[in-house]
Design a protein around this nucleic acid. Sequence first.
RNA 1: GCCCCCGUUGUGUAGCGGCCUAGCACGCCUGCCUCUCACGCAGGUAGCGCCGGUUCGAAUCCGGUCGGGGGUACCA
Length: 496
Amino acid sequence: MTVSTGSTTEKVRVRFCPSPTGSPHVGFARAALYNWAFARHHGGTFVFRIEDTDKERSTEESYEAMVGTLQWLGLDWDEGPLVGGDYGPYRQSERSDLYLDVLAKLAASSYTYDCYCTTEEAAARRKAAGSKVQGYDGFCRDLSEEQRAAFVAEGRTPIVRFRMPDGAVTWDDLVRGEVSFETEFVPDFALCRANGDPLYTLVNPVDDALMRITHVLRGEDLLSSTPRQIPLHRALVDLGISEGVPEFGHLPLIMGEGNKKLSKRDPQSHLWNYRDEGFLPEGLLNYLALLGWAIAADRDVFSLEEMVEAFDIKDVNPNPARFDTKKCQAINAAHMHQLSVEEVTDRALPFLKRDGVLTDPVSPADQQLLELAMPFVAERVNKLTEVSDMLRFLFIDEADFEVDETDRAKLVDTDDGQAVVQASYDALARVEPWSAARISDVLTETLVEDMGLKPRVAFGPVRVAVTGRRVSPPLFESLELLGRGRSLGRLQSALG
RNA sequence: GCCCCCGUUGUGUAGCGGCCUAGCACGCCUGCCUCUCACGCAGGUAGCGCCGGUUCGAAUCCGGUCGGGGGUACCA
């Protein structure tokens, strides 16, 4: 079928079909995002399918993580797990009958043949023939009944292979333009195991056909499987199983530091790490979108809605991109700063509880204190976990209050530091009323004017003694929120 | 080895034959602001892998070369 991506002549149907074999990584999210954005842009359907044909490697835990990740990211699907759809089931492990049926039809029309060779035998023949081509050599393509019987008598069980046509397979890749493979380099591939279990090579195209997928957008790592899938799709069309061959677009890979494909082992690639560190889904998605696509020449912070509006698969860059944690953080920070204080508070709440800063449920007093404190921190954090770091001093029990050792040694446990803390203690004891403005006046008068200290030198020790760190919300406001009693208590403990 | 893909500052990109003495963002470096951090503001740094060709004119087109990546399973 020919579906124009510019002016959609028929309903766009795309799918995202991960294998549940590990924890979701950034490539997973980017592929999901592009498919989702493409579907939404064209008013099409986004299908979520689980490719769990490999029983050895697929796990339920991973399946749940994949579903949970898409939910967390806010990439909603129209058909798939949890929501169903007209082309279900959407887990391949539940579709075995469908595959067996297709396999039988393919065999009946000689699109496939039984192969009795072992991988080693085929490789040995290739080597003996001095062939540069790897993979199966088509030995069993036209076996006689006698040969077949002989293999069976040896106790061999066949696998099914697809008969690759001669010539070249060429397609107009949505991202790369014309791509062509000579089929002499594409061996007849296996469609199922000797035990009858269907393989990815069969089920992926079959499901795309059965689910009426119009556009396949996937990673470049699958580029070389496309010359195998297109002939299979054509066979399915010929047999009346499919309505047409989908269009293909191969997305650039996301590379890690060493310019290698980001591996599942790399902690930088795991999505949950970003969630747990307090990245915003929209921030992460925005950054991921940038890896291969730009919304405009002079802008890189945008919302999902804006992306849907502007996304065109033809604008996707074919070259692989390096994942840059710093830029990812910067984009996330931009999204954080676009949120209102109330929104940052809502989003930070689970982190504050997780980190033990707040109790669950939050007490009315803490809730009030939180609302007073958030305006001072919301604008200075880049990710949600930083809220916990900034606010811990305010909510923690005095018994558990700790001062950073390094900061303490450097700023408080020095002669100058001790003098500042002592003077501050004496001055603050008499401050009336206990307000940020008065505290500011008194401390400035005492430390800066009377003692002749530079502001940054003067307030450093006080900040560390009272908040436990050199980085904190504004000092005077922090003191006001902490209250006179706790403030003086902490200053006192910092002495000696 | 073989097949395929890719090649603009450190990183991600804009550029689609003259608007480019190459724009934007992150990073990095300088300042300013300033009670820390962050924000904000003003500057700076650094790039078309290389060689040919086409053309009046090339980052943009063609060829080659080099480099990087992916794939080469009864994994997906």
